[in-house]
Design a protein around this nucleic acid. Sequence first.
RNA 1: GCGCCCGUAGCUCAGCUGGAUAGAGCGCUGCCCUCCGGAGGCAGAAGUCGGGGGUUCGAAUCCCUCCGGGCGCGCCA
Length: 582
Amino acid sequence: MKHQIETLLATAVAELPGLEGPAPTPVIERARDAQHGDYASNIAMQLAKPLRRKPREIAEDLITRIPDSPVLAGVEIAGPGFINFRLSPDAFHQELVRVIDDGQAYGCSDLGQGERVLVEFVSANPTGPLHVGHGRHAAYGACVANLLAATGHEVQREYYVNDAGRQMDILALSLWLRMQDLRGTGLAFPSGGYRGDYLVEIARGAVGDAHTRGLLPMPSDWGAGAPPDAPDGDADAHLDALIENLRERLGIEGFREVLGIGLQSILDDIRQDLGEFGVAYDNFFSERSLVESGAVAEALERVKASGHTYIEGGATWFRATDFGDEKDRVVVRDNGSTTYFASDIAYHLQKRGRGYARLVDILGADHHGYIARVRAGLAATGEPPECLEVDLVQFVVLYRGKDKVQMSTRSGQFITLRELREEVGDDAARLFFVSRSNEQHLDFDLELAKSRTNENPVYYIQYAHARICSVMSAADNQGIQWNEARGKQSLSRLTESHELKLMQALVRYPEMVELAARQRAPQHIVHYLRDLANDLHAYYNAHRFIVEDEALRDARLCLILATRQVLRNGLGLLGVSAPASM
RNA sequence: GCGCCCGUAGCUCAGCUGGAUAGAGCGCUGCCCUCCGGAGGCAGAAGUCGGGGGUUCGAAUCCCUCCGGGCGCGCCA
């Protein structure tokens, strides 16, 4: 609808005399005040300067050039030179019919024209279960992917599995120590190890099998030669010595087997958690595969070939400052191993190599330093740095009513996504996570999320949907069938203020999807749905839908069914269910 | 110290590309079904858009500066 108006106005602008160069594309926005009509444009004010004419005069001129259209009921000039457009009843009726006819597809567009976009999100290190913060990433990323898909982009949803590097060695060591514990050989657990109970669980499942393969048990004085642990010694040095020692004892194969057991079960758990949360991925991309395929080495070659590297202190540095980063970055350490940053360059080059025009990374707010350096890496290797778009997600603070929930592992308070889901439910969690801008810190009130009252936007929106379903089944119980054709023909009977308001809200839905997709801001959808639910509830309270007058009844059912469809579609984008009863 | 994010009603937050009289929810005050689900609706009170300066026809929105809060600045991942 909005685009129709834009096209009409563009025609008028193109005909305007005295314009040098290309005519600016007129911009239409929704009028803030219903008294001003449905849409407004400030084009006349924008043209005032180049044309050296008064805005109101230009507006007058434009109005006479706007082609006649059945969707327009009126065009007026207001204030300093706004052009206000009022939609005709026909325009609303057409749109209502479109909602019914398009069904699930209503609100979708081909705006993206099939552009290939890779959305990478969560990508939590596979060293433990997902926590609450990852839940926000998952909910946000899934919505962004849905929004991009709904607006005609070809979307790939990807999880980057950091299954290479030292953290994996620490995981293997930690798991192996837990397995030892179960065999009764109590060794001191290093302070830098992964202490979570989940590793004990995994160890329990693995210990029997490992034992039969001769990996267990080990002598209890194992690791005695390692430098002291913190607080007296260096925790990292201690850890590294233990890892080296273990690798020697178990051999490369044995070590990898232990590592594999830990990685696999944690990854399975993460997959399951996300799946149950309604977050589906197209691909889990392994960092290790990147290393083993030689992609990292290849990426390094490309960076070196660009001439933007140098050697200092035995390490190879990438001169990121050549591309606007604040400092240069190491890509190969003095010990010969590549850095995480090197993998990152390789990964992003690899994504480009797979044909993705846009790379959307959804990262924690603490990762903002990466953006410049990865872009620098892309630029050095000849890729357009702006193809990488990063959305930073701020932290989540849990509240139980007024009390802040401490999220330290030690406190014993829950911190995992699974526990959150179990406490408040998937729908509430998904909606709460995306109800705020990703750039905003999120206060997540568990009590509010659980409450089944109007305080809770989840239930408020779902209730509107269930209410419509309830009306339909009530009609059914009375032996009344909705006559679709008669309803569509009788839409001119919808003249109550509540009905007009609801229609105005429905028409806005495709614009909201577009806006939310463009800004990657799903909170717009949440706020829109809340408003839509409000309009529905108000209408419900003011009027009855199942009335004697058949034409009016069918028209009203048409309106609420269209509302139900939009609620459903919107909730679908958010990954929240639309129950028929609650 | 440098960089990024944030500061809007008592609380939690929207506010689109700069646009017309800054909006919701909660909380507070008072109302509303003999009815298709009261998990609802209606009305009211409540604001120096952190302070100051600038850009312009117009600033919560852009720029500068100050104040306050969060995060980041490894040959970690």
